[in-house]
């Protein structure tokens, strides 16, 4: 086909775009993927037995808040990287700031605690499981988010994959908080962060393959 004819056919096909379609397309995956993760917590991991009580405490919301902020940062990055020439920098800055915040708080609490208690604070009772559970719970959101981003026009695929992974990891960690009974800041700063980082790493790993579009 001649290029001029192609242009004519594209012009004939032109319809107004829905503003916010990129944001909406990616945000919807959190709802769907989050619902699956929630179902997994209910039937597989189980809610924490003291949920009602814990919801009155500060640490429960600290964990949820940290996860939500990282999900938002990942969303921001992904929303930018789903566009050609989009820059993830603002989202990345938010993620790093949030991480630095909880790390500092965690270190502060550790420093104030008696040395004998420090290991227990840091490792809690579930440090081996926590990152793996978060990674597992992130899978549905990650898969959907990658499909969504691919429909747009990412041009830096590895980075866009990592952003989708961070987003999915944040969503998963927020929901995992319904199961997890850990209460230390150092635990949150280390193992939650590791879980979300693993999810981002998986996203980065599969991004170049999963996000390639034609």
């Amino acid at each position: 086909m001649k290029t001029d004819d192609l242009i004519e056919s594209l012009v004939a096909d032109l319809a107004p775009v829905r503003p916010g379609a990129v944001r909406l397309g990616i945000a919807a995956t959190a709802a769907a993927g989050g619902a699956v993760a929630l179902a997994l917590v209910f039937v597989w991991l189980g809610l924490r037995p003291d949920l009602a009580e814990a919801a009155g405490g500060m640490m429960f919301w600290m964990k949820a808040g940290y996860a939500v902020v990282l999900a938002a940062a990942g969303f921001w990055c992904a929303e930018r990287l789903a566009r050609p020439a989009g820059s993830p920098r603002p989202g990345l800055t938010l993620a790093i700031a949030a991480l630095a915040f909880v790390l500092l708080l965690g270190l502060g609490r550790m420093a104030m605690a008696p040395p004998a208690d420090r290991m227990a604070m840091w490792l809690g009772g579930s440090w081996r499981r926590c990152p793996i559970y978060i990674l597992t719970l992130s899978a549905p959101t990650l898969a959907l988010a990658l499909l969504a981003v691919r429909r747009f026009a990412p041009t830096r695929l590895r980075m866009a994959g990592a952003a989708a992974g961070l987003f999915a990891g944040g969503v998963a960690a927020a929901i995992y908080g319904l199961h997890c009974t850990e209460t230390s800041m150092a635990f949150l700063a280390t193992w939650y962060s590791l879980g979300m980082a693993l999810s981002a790493a998986v996203g980065a790993l599969v991004g170049p393959w999963a996000l390639r579009w034609r």
Partner: peptide, 9 residues
Amino acid sequence: LAIHRRRVT
């Protein structure tokens, strides 16, 4: 074609 189809981005 890509610019047309993905103009929403």
